[in-house]
Amino acid sequence: MIAALVRGPLGRLVPVAVVLLALQTTLFVDVQPFGVVLQLLTAFAAAAGVAGGPERGMLAGFLLGLMFDLGTGAPLASSSLTMGLAGLVAGSVTFLNIELRWWLSAGFVALGAAVGEFAVPVVRYVIGQEDVFSEHLYTIVPVVAVGAALLSPLLVPLGRWCLLIGKVEWKVPNE
């Protein structure tokens, strides 16, 4: 069973998440465009959703969120909710049933990341934290979304690899 877990998506997702979390807590806290911390893990959760659909995106987001909360001291599972939501929203691209172009993937990764980031203060408000909504949120959400879109060419293939998903091949139906 353990071997199956290691060989499955979990065996790839966890090490990748550890590396991404290390980057999130080092590189991305120093490199802040417009004073906003780009959310690498939220973007990756959204990318996993684009690559694998809403369920896998949500599960990946849940796991990534747990690791983020454990690593940063945030209330446990608060980021699981937001990143899971990011994966779910971004994964809805698969409902379109069309070929995924890079710009479409980038757009849905951006959408998922934006929804996920907006959900952070909402979740914090629900669990009793005060003064979580500020005008800065109008800057944070678009910048996080654009950052996620720019990172999507790297993150979507990485998400596909982590979730053991082969590249979609479109075949011309036989006449």
Binding site: L59, F62, P75, L76, A77, S80, G84
Partner: peptide, 21 residues
């Protein structure tokens, strides 16, 4: 199945949050 999954993850998150807080 998807709805169940969403509900399951949501409940798990709420449970973990409650215990942690």
């Amino acid at each position: 199945g998807r709805r169940r999954l969403i509900a399951l993850l949501l409940l798990t998150s709420v449970l973990l949050l409650t215990l942690d807080l």
